[in-house]
């Protein structure tokens, strides 16, 4: 694999993200904080979807878990160390995902999607209806927390978000991405991809189908909860909308927009949608329509998402003779559930 150009691009992207608080008004850094939350959550989500072939339509439940976890730990219990909140959110993700995953990984395809959607809706109605515990539709407050034990008392909320917390989240995302990169390129990741492609064959090669799917489910839940804790801190609120099925759909949207068949696709999708949604909301109140139209266009014309488009453009520019030819299938391994137009049951 040709790594060099992409390494340069990634370093450049990280440097650019690092410069946002310095060069741009605080508004933009503040805007990007949720992006980091989503990026972390989607890295986990795509382990399940892109690498494991399981499309969860209830994944927002874990983001909600992280946000509500932050509200409980920092707000109710008064432990205002963000690191402890992160650990607590991760633990909550683990504890919830283990039994839940044990139940749901026995199903694949549309049944897996429906079951996760059902659990998501169940969580939503619990959060929504038990207002004496969860604040109902007004949600729970997530107070301001200390980062690495530092109060940052001189900063107001916006300055905290656009400064220290911004860098904190950037660092978290880099760590999360590094760990996920190791996971998908490990022997475990290989087995996960093999059972996505052909579970029967994988079984006979000794791949522990249910255990591996469960592991992927749990890891994705932990990532989701950590992302949710960031979202909760940023908005200062954990509310049931976080868990609603349309929010789960939003997560899938970001992943597909960026391209689930590439490692960085979900991060690209999270960034693109965060910026896009902000722009659209300032232009028109009908931004959902535009987003829906974009999603439809991506699904129809760009099944490999923005990352796939970038890869095609990149290989077109770097090919010695720049001539339009038939779209070439990439020769080396792709983590995607689907190549272009490939059905999952397209197993010879």
């Amino acid at each position: 694999m040709r790594r060099a150009p992409s390494v340069i691009l990634i370093v450049a992207a990280v440097v650019a993200l690092g410069l946002v608080p310095v060069l741009a008004p605080p508004f933009y850094a503040n805007l990007l904080v949720p992006f980091y939350g989503y990026a972390i959550a989607l890295l986990g989500f795509n382990l399940l979807f892109g690498y494991g072939g399981l499309l969860s339509f209830g994944h927002a439940m874990f983001l909600g878990l992280g946000a509500y976890g932050a509200a409980v730990i920092a707000g109710v219990w008064g432990i205002k160390e963000f690191e402890i909140v992160l650990i607590g959110a991760a633990l909550a993700g683990l504890v919830v995902a283990l039994p839940l995953g044990w139940l749901v990984v026995r199903y694949t395809g549309i049944f897996f999607g429906m079951l996760t959607l059902a659990f998501g809706m169940l969580t939503h109605s619990v959060l929504f209806k038990f207002y004496h515990l969860t604040g109902g539709d007004s949600g729970m407050r997530v107070p301001r927390m200390r980062l690495l034990g530092l109060e940052f008392a001189a900063y107001n909320k916006i300055e905290l978000m656009a400064g220290p917390f911004y860098y904190y989240c950037l660092a978290l995302m880099l760590i999360a991405a590094f760990l996920m990169w190791r996971i998908v390129h490990s022997p475990f990741g290989l087995h996960l991809r093999s059972l996505r492609d052909n579970a029967q064959k994988a079984l006979y090669l000794g791949v522990r189908v249910h255990q591996f799917r469960l592991a992927a489910f749990v890891i994705s839940a932990i990532y989701g909860a950590i992302g949710g804790a960031i979202l909760g801190f940023r908005t200062g609120l954990a509310d049931p909308e976080l868990v609603y099925w349309t929010h789960s759909g939003h997560l899938v949207f970001m992943t597909v927009l960026g391209g689930f068949s590439s490692f960085l696709g979900p991060i690209i999708g999270a960034l693109a949608l965060t910026l896009l949604q902000d722009q659209l909301q300032s232009y028109t109140q009908y931004w959902r329509f535009v987003l829906g139209a974009i999603l439809a266009l991506v699904v129809i014309f760009l099944p490999r998402g923005l990352a796939g488009l970038a890869a095609d453009v990149g290989s077109f520019l770097s090919s010695p003779r720049r001539r339009p030819g038939p779209v070439q299938l990439p020769e080396h391994s792709q983590p995607g559930v689907l190549g272009p137009g490939l059905r999952r049951d397209d197993v010879a």
């Binding site: 022997p187 290989l190 991809r193 093999s194 080396h332 391994s333 995607g336 197993v347």
Partner: peptide, 15 residues
Amino acid sequence: QIFPQLTVAETIGAA
């Protein structure tokens, strides 16, 4: 029975 999107090395590697 193959894994359509795994390489030859990855397929053997899984075993």
